[in-house]
Design a protein around this nucleic acid. Structure first.
Lengths: 341, 341
DNA sequence: GTGAAAGCGCTAACAC
DNA sequence: GTGTTAGCGCTTTCAC
């Protein structure tokens, strides 16, 4: 607090020019004489001037900042999903000299206030919404405002908004079909929270594959999980108690698939021999564990979301307002034909 | 853009009171008559007023925002470290109604501009610095400022600043001593980037344990890694080519230890039988792989850092300006006495 | 070319 | 109790 902050005023006082001229000189306007500009720039340099971004924001009515509210609970993020997407978003924003304003709130009323705070408090120029839910109130709220936003995931709301999504339904259809083709007929499924859009898509894909193969989706073989490792373990235990036991288990995400592997090991059930296991996401541990999965390029999606949002903020038209990506099937050693086959 | 923004002015116009009175009514000052206050609150409610936070920031000269610049490269964060710390910071800040302004810049000149931007652009009330380096310019820069900051990690600079750190030296001393006590004498070490403070501490702990056991730190058994999985694999391969082969390998972080496990498996070297492997961090995959490691409570450290920073910002004295935590050794199945023992 | 003046939306001394 | 005035630091008409 010793040294007074250096503002335009300071430079103006020192150089004898007006605040206006200083501002223009610094901004590089052409209507400032080269000499004046020179003097101003030097003074700014010497004094160590740096513009107050808040003041500029207030004046310009824009913040060069994008908001992201992580819908996560508890100490750990439920999976590497969040860090990958933050990395993608962060890298892309850096390219455009924009910042990321981040909050973390579990779904609920406080979450929506966090959105209101960012939007109505005019703290950001746009928002990124991730992990869509059924009847997602974040989307209905945001679409009621005029603030640009982009979404990772689709919605069941009758609202049009720009999004990128992975075609989870097709992904799990493909994966299930693959297992069926290997001869599996009892394929257990660990589902995700019912309110998450992607969890439903994934389940739908699984069901459709069974049906198209002439099988029915036996709900005994479908157990609820919560996307966490613990939840996955519980679900896996339950599935492995069934008689006849499933010969394959598909989990809504890799984290639960990984959990299934642990549980199976514990019970001395050999993965990729006695039991096939597959997931979705292709998180790093899946590679170590040689887990068959559907790859989702989360980092790239983060980049792309940022980019879309940046276009929207600049007022540019979007090339693709709705992007639906095809996940890639990664077959590893955790899947094989069933024992009896 | 249809509807004009609702500001204090709007409410003032509608209610007939002055902007000042409206401001005070909304702020709950006691010198506003109950009736007036009532009218103002109702009008604000009806109009859907929300204060412009930028304007408030400019006036109050504070932002209720904390900055964090992730020193990460590339698409993936090098490990779950970043997401855990963001989670911790985010949760704690939410408690104090503060936001997190996040950037991601690999170490380098652009990184420091990002700091300058936040500090001198007065975008934040304080900063959190993570993953300290030798002669860390971020710290010397920040300490030349009057802005509060807290650090995860210590420094070799002759500067006093508030920090939390894990005692990595003691951690690896303990871990190495444990392996020695099991009978290992050829313990390979995968080091981290030389400029990272914690990487050096970890190496020092390893060396000291060897020396106190009367052994010398044979640099042939020390291979440079870069904390990533790929780098870990390369280093592990190199170590496993040595003759005589190390009977145990310690990696500077779990990610590289996990990589070592992969490489060993590939070569049909049985972990926990033919080869002991241990790391540092206790990231989720370590648990799945039953990796012996030193646990570092990254999430809690994030919370604690936020909390310290919040105290500093409020001008409160810090209880502990320097916190040095003892990591906890987690012995799992990846370590055992050497074969020949 | 340069400066005066207004205004972004808010808060806070200071009158009355 | 309430309003007037000033000011946070910046940009931007609009005169001269």
């Amino acid at each position: 607090m010793m040294t007074q902050r250096v503002t335009l005023k300071t430079i103006a006082a020192k150089t004898g020019f007006s605040i206006t001229t200083v501002s223009r000189g610094l901004a590089g306007y052409s209507d400032v004489s080269p000499r004046t500009k020179q003097i101003i720039l030097e003074a700014a340099e010497v004094l160590g001037y740096y513009p107050n971004l808040t003041a500029r924001q207030l004046q310009k009515q824009s913040t060069d900042t994008v908001g992201l509210i992580l819908p996560a609970q508890g100490p750990r993020f439920s999976d590497p999903y969040f860090s990958a997407i933050i990395a993608g978003i962060g890298d892309e924003l850096a390219q455009h000299d924009m910042d990321l304003l981040l909050s973390k709130h579990p779904p609920g009323p406080k979450e929506l206030s966090a959105y209101r705070r960012m939007v109505e408090g005019q703290r950001v120029d746009g928002l990124i919404v991730i992990r869509t839910r059924k009847q997602d109130e974040r989307i209905s709220y945001l679409s009621s405002t005029s603030l640009p936003f982009v979404v990772f995931g689709r919605s069941d709301l009758d609202i049009d908004f720009p999004y990128i999504d992975e075609d989870s339904e097709v992904g799990f259809f493909q994966l299930t079909t693959y297992l069926l083709s290997q001869g599996h007929t009892r394929i257990g499924f660990i589902s995700g929270p019912d309110n998450l859009m992607f969890a439903n898509f994934r389940f739908d894909g699984y069901c459709r594959a069974l049906q198209e193969a002439g099988l029915t989706c036996d709900m005994e073989y479908v157990v609820r999980g919560d996307l966490t490792r613990k939840g996955g373990e519980k679900a896996a235990r339950q599935l492995l108690l069934l008689a006849p036991r499933p010969t394959a288990i598909i989990a809504t995400n890799d984290l639960m698939a990984v959990a299934t592997v642990s549980v199976a090991r514990e019970k001395d059930i050999k993965i990729g021999e006695d039991l096939s296991v597959a997931g979705f996401d292709d998180i790093p541990p899946s590679d170590y564990l040689s887990l068959t999965t559907m790859r989702q390029p989360t980092y790239e999606i983060g980049r792309r979301l940022s980019n879309m949002l940046h276009q929207l903020i600049k007022g540019n038209p979007l090339e693709d307002r709705h992007v639906l990506l095809k996940p890639e099937m990664i077959v590893r050693n955790s899947t094989c034909p069933p024992r009896s086959y």
